[in-house]
Amino acid sequence: MLIEELLKKIPNSNLMLEIKGVGLTTVAGFIAEIGDISNYNSPKQIQKLSGLDLKENSSGKHKGKTSISK
């Protein structure tokens, strides 16, 4: 399979494939979207890029629920 051959050339993609429930298509899509993971200083940068950063709905004394931004 072509995707599998290409993923073997990408450093650390095999570590992502070891995660339970994560397959070839998921890893290939993730790498295609974010590119080289070494370009990011923290996981929060990738979360924000994907729109999955956490936000809290609160004001003043009111503390609301924390949810995913998208």
Rank of each mutant, 00 (worst) to 15 (best):
K63H: 11
K61W: 05
I31P: 00
T66G: 01
L7S: 03
I19G: 07
N57V: 14
E33R: 09
G23H: 03
E5Q: 07
I31K: 02
K55S: 12
S38C: 06
V27K: 01
L15R: 09
L24A: 01
K48I: 13
K48H: 12
E18C: 06
N41L: 08
K48D: 13
E56I: 14
S42V: 07
G64C: 10
L15G: 04
V27T: 00
P11D: 05
L49W: 04
S50G: 13
L7T: 06
G21M: 05
S59H: 12
I19V: 15
L15K: 13
D53E: 15
L2P: 10
M1K: 14
G35T: 05
L54R: 08
N12H: 14
K65E: 11
M16R: 00
S13D: 05
K65Y: 04
L2V: 12
F30L: 07
E56S: 13
M16A: 02
V27Q: 00
L54I: 15
K70Y: 12
G60E: 10
I10D: 01
K63L: 15
S50N: 11
E56G: 06
A32G: 00
I31R: 02
D53N: 15
I68M: 02
S38D: 06
S58L: 10
G21W: 06
K55F: 12
S50Y: 14
T66M: 09
L52G: 09
K61F: 11
A28Y: 06
A28S: 14
E33S: 13
N39Q: 12
M1F: 13
I46A: 10
K65G: 09
T26A: 08
N12W: 08
T25G: 06
G64N: 08
V27L: 03
L17N: 01
M16K: 01
S67D: 04
P11H: 04
D53C: 09
I19Q: 05
G29S: 10
L24G: 02
P11N: 04
E18D: 11
N41I: 06
T66S: 09
I34L: 04
S58G: 12
N57G: 05
N14T: 11
D36W: 09
K55E: 15
S38E: 11
K8A: 12
I34V: 08
Y40F: 15
V27R: 03
S59F: 15
N12G: 05
G64M: 07
D36S: 13
V22I: 15
A28Q: 05
G60F: 11
I46D: 03
I10N: 02
L52N: 12
